[in-house]
Design a protein around this nucleic acid. Structure first.
Lengths: 205, 205
DNA sequence: CCTACCGATCGGTAGG
DNA sequence: CCTACCGATCGGTAGG
């Protein structure tokens, strides 16, 4: 019986390339973003997907698995990007700009997922929770190291590195209020505005 | 009976100036910050306070009332500060610096409350929810108006005002990771670093 | 995929 | 302030 439905999930690929499982994850991300992980119920997710709550469990193991998938999808993309940037030949300033643009794009184009992974990861259960804590700590350290290197090479203004990391990574979270605003500038314009504000803060005068 | 315990709350003022009610609110803020509003239970709050869950209701009406108190305490302080700054004779740049320092101080010295009011206000129920949404929208507009004025008077670099507001108000949220970090710089040093980064982003070159 | 259902936990009340 | 308890809702399972 179980095998039958797993197969059903696969067969949809022919029509739409989106499995039922992926739809569930996508709808879960939207609800987790809107109500928070704890406040969003499996019954609500099922409603939006158009099935009974019990049916969700033919595609996913638990509510927490949904959160795991969302959070690590995002975290892994960040880690991958960090590796790409680190091994590039760009200047420190260009590396940072590259990373910032990646974050901004993520907030604009994968908003729900990124938002959830950023605000709801505390509800992960172990071992995923400590794994995520490590990934986040490591990411910030690598980000800081790039700035540090830029300061040493005198490509970047002398600033407190920890403060700069903290400001830059959090400022991007502000794109949330851009999503909510009615009279939006375009995403591309927002990106340029943010980059110029943040990168100017690093340039030597 | 009820009156008796309300009286008990008041009488404590003689010893410590902190009523049982205020202790409950303070502990609730800590738990709401750590676990989120929905994930923190009244039983946990009661545990920390040192009473049974049912006893909390002699001091507060509901779990949501706790959130109301925390959120509007913070929001009202912001509104009050905004009025003070608007009616001052400071330059636009000085006004912004003044507001930023106020936010930074809040994040450093009233961390739990400010954090909760910023991240958990979505769980308010009406009419408090729409009230809060209005207060937040209004605050951002008034903040934007100050920057706008500075740009017009050419005290401030020509920037996209909406983007600047978004960056500045969210960057301050980054102080959260300062609280979590082990090798901290002092709060005062953090404040100076943040101010110089953010205010430099506004100054004309 | 559904119906039927379970144990746990929640916010909150009654009553002393 | 406590004990005792309630109805609602939750994540999840059994079984077809």
């Amino acid at each position: 019986m179980l095998a039958y439905f797993c197969f059903m999930g696969r067969i949809k690929t022919t029509n739409s390339q989106v499995t039922r499982r992926e739809i569930i994850i996508e709808k879960a991300a939207i609800l987790f973003k809107e109500k928070g992980f704890k406040a969003a119920s499996m019954r609500e997710i099922a409603d939006v997907v158009g099935v009974e709550a019990a049916s969700l469990y033919n595609h996913i193991k638990s509510k927490n698995e949904l959160l795991n998938i969302i959070c690590f999808d995002v975290a892994n993309r960040y880690t991958q990007k960090m590796e790409e940037v680190e091994s590039s030949k760009l200047s420190s300033l260009a590396k940072i700009e590259n990373l910032l643009r990646f974050h901004i794009d993520g907030m604009i184009n994968h908003f729900e997922e990124v938002y959830v992974s950023d605000r709801e990861w505390k509800h992960l259960d172990n071992p995923y929770l400590s794994n995520m804590q490590n990934q986040r700590r490591t990411y910030r350290k690598r980000f800081a190291a790039i700035i540090e290197e830029g300061v040493k090479k005198k490509e970047i203004k002398k600033i407190d590195v920890a403060t700069a990391v903290l400001i830059m990574l959090h400022a991007i979270g502000g794109i949330e209020s851009w999503h909510r605003s009615t009279q939006k500038i375009t995403g591309a314009a927002l990106e340029e505005n943010m980059i110029s504000f943040l990168i100017d803060g690093l340039k030597k005068i």
